[in-house]
């Protein structure tokens, strides 16, 4: 009897041990935690380029520009410049190489006081920057950048010098990003593409243009062209000749770039080509007036005709369709790139 009791005690003890072990094992199993599942932040409305990224981009672009300036060669520009900006900078470098009295390169150090960042998630993406006031004379630069596709880099697409005393339209916060405006956007007083074409017409024929009414009465560029033409004609007439100055503007095939402003309008950048012709009487021998054109002219034979072809870029503010404000010029840039004597 005692033996059986002892045996049962042993058995019970064993059962107890087993139970305890099982409990521990269960606890151990119970405490293993399942791996978490990823929780992604919801997509938010924000610029697709951060300001930090934009600064990096600006640095890289200006670095390439500076390098090309130093080496005085335009080939390396293509890695960070595209479209009208590439053509214009190449023209500038060409003039700079021909010029004897130093260069007239546009300052593209790209130190910005304000950036306008894209909000579209797709490509191409465009960003803009408004430069700081340069130390010497001159006005800030407005530059446009484009990333044509995801695997390409941001490249300087175009740049203009802002007009003196210009008030830039307001843009959305860089953190939010500003939407691009399509070339045929109809919410504006004129579609961006049309605005550039109309402005070309206004520049060419002035007040006689049918679009003159849509633009500000007069602007810096039109005054400049008028006075420049007058200067040349006066120079001829001062010597009892008869001279004529003609200028023709024409948008290039480059697509225009436009970005929405806070008021619903758009800032539009468009590339143009202009050709100015100074014509005197038969026997006259003319030479270009401006140093840059003269540098290109070099030893071209002088005739009674001076034809200079420019690459132009204009920046226009196009107000929303329901606005009373006219389309206005905010900046422009022109670089001579070819001369002819016929």
């Amino acid at each position: 009897m005692p033996r059986s009791r002892a045996r049962s005690r042993v058995r019970r003890r064993g059962a107890g041990c087993l139970a305890a072990t099982a409990a521990v094992a269960l606890l151990a199993v119970g405490c293993t935690v399942e791996p978490p599942t990823p929780v992604a932040d919801e997509p938010v409305v924000a610029a697709v380029v951060s300001e930090a990224q934009e600064l990096k981009i600006l640095d890289r672009v200006s670095g390439v520009v500076a390098e090309a300036d130093r080496a005085d060669e335009a080939r390396s520009l293509a890695s960070r410049l595209s479209g009208p900006a590439l053509a214009m900078r190449q023209a500038e470098l060409k003039v700079a190489a021909a010029e004897v009295d130093g260069t007239r390169l546009t300052d593209l150090s790209l130190e910005m006081q304000q950036v306008v960042l894209p909000s579209e998630q797709g490509w191409p993406r465009s960003s803009y920057g408004i430069g700081v006031q340069p130390k010497g004379k001159g006005t800030p630069v407005l530059a446009a950048f484009e990333q044509a596709s995801a695997r390409e880099q941001y490249k300087l697409w175009g740049y203009v010098q802002l007009l003196p005393n210009t008030t830039m339209p307001r843009f959305a916060d860089p953190a939010l990003g500003s939407p691009a405006v399509a070339a045929d956007d109809t919410t504006l007083k004129a579609t961006p593409e049309a605005a550039v074409a109309q402005y070309a017409s206004v520049l060419t024929v002035g007040e006689r243009s049918q679009y003159a009414g849509a633009f500000t009465d007069d602007d810096e560029l039109r005054r400049l062209l008028r006075s420049y033409g007058k200067l040349q004609v006066d120079a001829i007439e001062a010597k009892d000749g008869k001279g004529a100055f003609k200028i023709a503007y024409e948008p290039t095939k480059d697509p225009v770039k436009a970005v929405r402003t806070v008021d619903g309008g758009a800032l539009v950048l468009g590339a143009m080509i202009s050709q100015e012709t100074v014509r005197a009487e038969e026997r006259w021998k003319l030479a270009p007036l401006t140093p840059s054109a003269r540098a290109l002219w070099a030893d071209t034979e002088q005739t009674n005709v001076v034809r200079v072809v420019y690459r132009d870029m204009v920046a226009l503010y196009v107000p929303p369709a329901d606005s009373d404000a006219p389309v206005s010029l905010v900046g422009h840039h022109r670089v001579p790139y070819a001369v002819a004597n016929d």
């Binding site: 019970r12 107890g16 151990a28």
Partner: peptide
């Protein structure tokens, strides 16, 4: 007595488990 043993064992097990974790 059996319960006592069980409790002691469980207690030791609990301590052991706590330390083991």
């Amino acid at each position: 007595r059996f319960l006592a043993i069980l409790l002691i064992l469980a207690g030791l097990g609990g301590i052991g488990f706590g330390v083991a974790t």
